[in-house]
């Protein structure tokens, strides 16, 4: 069983829908510990991505083509830190998926490349209350599922669940990277908005594969 370009397109559309539905929640999370623009910015970015997908005259040949369109559009339209962070994640993921179909190992490679992109761009590690705290367990869970012989859909399901757990685990953390770090101790007790949006995007990936 493999995932094809149609899956990638569906993932992106579902991500856009999830971000739109949770826009206000993301805004509120970011207002508590950041500058309050995460929901607005990400929604603007994914709305632009969907418009670009709609304007395509033919379906791209490779999964990486879809992810590169997402990357460049998010970088251009998001406006906040999420633009270069998700943009770099999708760009690295695109380079790792220059193929028409993905098996489970391909899914793992996609997630690992995305995580690497975020780490390179944001210079963050786990435990700093950022989206890295959702991406890292997601990538690891997919790799573990792959080793256990999981299908691509099962690997994505494991990644989505791990991202959700990782996001919840950011609540007690004190932020040491990003705008929330200016709050110091007061950032504890809040869910990190970037970790939450990561959870939404990886959930969308799993749902598109189910």
């Amino acid at each position: 069983m493999t995932l094809d370009v149609a899956w990638a397109v569906d993932w992106v559309r579902r991500s856009a829908q999830a971000v739109a539905e949770h826009r206000d929640e993301l805004v509120e999370l970011d207002r508590q510990i950041g500058d309050g623009d995460h929901g607005e910015n990400l929604n603007r970015g994914f709305t632009a991505v969907v418009a670009k997908l709609d304007a395509l005259e033919e379906t791209p040949a490779e999964i990486g083509d879809v992810l590169k369109l997402v990357a460049t559009t998010l970088m251009s339209t998001v406006g906040g830190a999420a633009g270069p962070l998700y943009g770099t994640a999708f760009l690295r993921a695109a380079k790792a998926t220059a193929v028409p179909e993905l098996d489970t190992k391909g899914v793992v490679a996609l997630l690992e490349a995305a995580l690497e992109g975020i780490v390179v761009r944001g210079k963050a590690r786990t435990g700093e209350k950022t989206m890295v705290d959702a991406w890292t367990p997601a990538s690891e869970a997919a790799a573990a599922a792959s080793d256990a012989g999981a299908s691509p859909a099962q690997a994505l399901e494991a990644a989505a669940q791990a991202a959700a757990d990782g996001a919840q685990a950011t609540i007690p953390l004190v932020a040491t990277k990003g705008r929330a770090s200016y709050l110091g101790e007061r950032s504890a007790g809040h869910l990190d908005p970037g970790a939450r949006s990561t959870e939404l995007i990886l959930q969308a990936a799993a749902q598109a594969a189910a």
Binding site: T72, G83, P84, L85, G87, T88, R121, G122
Partner: peptide
């Protein structure tokens, strides 16, 4: 100036 301006500039150079 602030963080994401740096991230955007670095992304531009990456590409």
């Amino acid at each position: 100036d602030l963080g994401s301006a740096v991230l955007t500039a670095e992304s531009v150079l990456d590409l």
